[in-house]
Design a protein around this nucleic acid. Sequence first.
DNA 1: CTCCAGGATAAAC
DNA 2: GTTTATCATGGA
Length: 292
Amino acid sequence: MKIKPVLYDDYVILENVSPDDISIKDTFECGQCFRWEKLEDEGSYFGIAHGKRLVVQQTQTHIKMFCNKQDFSDIWNDYFDLRVDYDEIKEKLRKDDIMNKAISSSPGIRLLNQELFETTISFITSSNSNIKRITKNIKDLCRLLGEPISGGYYAFPTIKAVSEADICTINECKAGFRCDYIQSSAIMIKAMSESFDKKRYVKLGYDETKKELMKLKGVGHKVADCIILFSGISSSAFPTDVWVKRIMQDLYIKKDVSIDYVLKYGQEKFGNLAGYAQQYLFHYARSNTLKN
DNA sequence: CTCCAGGATAAAC
DNA sequence: GTTTATCATGGA
């Protein structure tokens, strides 16, 4: 199905969209992003990206975004991946009983196209941590180094801000040993200048981009795949963490194997849709367990 | 108290 | 090239 946004002066409506088409809850809470908070108002979220604030509201029949036409066209249309037809993707992935079940458990998940630097730092912070704590670390990092936005909120810090920050300041976000990675990666990225660029990485392709990203401190296979997938560089990425390993072994492979084996297995099986498949599987694995 | 969390690293084999 | 101890913090 094609999403047809209707643009008004102060808001945008996605009409005839059910939570099975797009679920902002599943999309925001599936661990790909860390800066969207649930509001008291039923089905509403507040978040910041590209230095802009946004409130999103979902009902059974439509989604409403409180932004002007310009920001929607410049930022949010792409951020929410609205040009991509997910029905097509889901149909291709529903080849076996397992993916069929996984997709049915969260059919409204979408992959967000997030800012490259934010995604990089966020997933460096994620290593051997949990979503709840990562969220807090990122929030603190924004408060410490981000540009203030009206309402007491902060933009995600710039490359310059993080690269020039004192390690003691970075340490205040309580990301522990990862603070060191955050600092040195930011400095390396600053030195890369123009070449740390999403468009360039899209052209470069999955393999070469991953190789380059893994030169950064704190970026291994898993984190590199998260950066590539969640910043919208390539959907061939297949972030393989303990959850994905667990469910892939349990449902497909039927034996205990290495992380690397699961990564290759997933990419061979799902090809350039591996990233989408991974999201459905990750959510499916976690939805049947206690998560923090 | 121990164990685990969207792992990566350097050292050791 | 592949295992292993260690890393800082909070929650269960």
